[in-house]
């Protein structure tokens, strides 16, 4: 877990250094957005494939999916509400 965290951090820092120090071509910077989108959608597709291939996951989706959905809607909902409150109270509330 810690090694993963460090690895992710290392890669972001590496990208950050390149973004800050290396003079990147304007063209590349403009393309960065669509490159990210393409990568992201591909990654999400593979994540979907992984879920679709896992019979156990698909079967439990059908049996306990509704309960799990209720659970996660409340979990996400209250997370957003709490961050909203904290943002308004302590972080300036803009954005």
């Amino acid at each position: 877990m810690t090694t993963r965290l460090l690895m992710y951090l290392g890669i972001i820092v590496l990208g950050g250094l390149i973004g800050a120090k290396v003079k990147l071509k304007e063209k590349f910077i403009k393309r960065l957005g669509s490159l990210q989108t393409a990568c992201l959608l591909f990654l999400l597709f593979i994540m979907g494939v992984k879920i679709g291939l896992d019979d156990k996951v698909i079967n439990s989706f059908l049996s306990i999916g509704l309960n799990a959905l209720i659970m996660s809607i409340f979990t996400v909902g209250f997370s957003v509400i709490f961050v909203y409150i904290i943002n308004k109270l302590f972080l300036g509330g803009k954005e």
Partner: peptide
């Protein structure tokens, strides 16, 4: 086919690294 799963984690790891690298560039800019 099921055997794609053997590669899925590598593909996800690689894709994720690439994306995090781009996130880093964005921050650096």
């Amino acid at each position: 086919p099921q055997n794609i799963l053997n590669y899925a984690d590598y593909i996800i790891d690689f894709g994720l690294m690439l994306l995090l690298f781009f996130v880093g560039i964005d921050i650096g800019l």
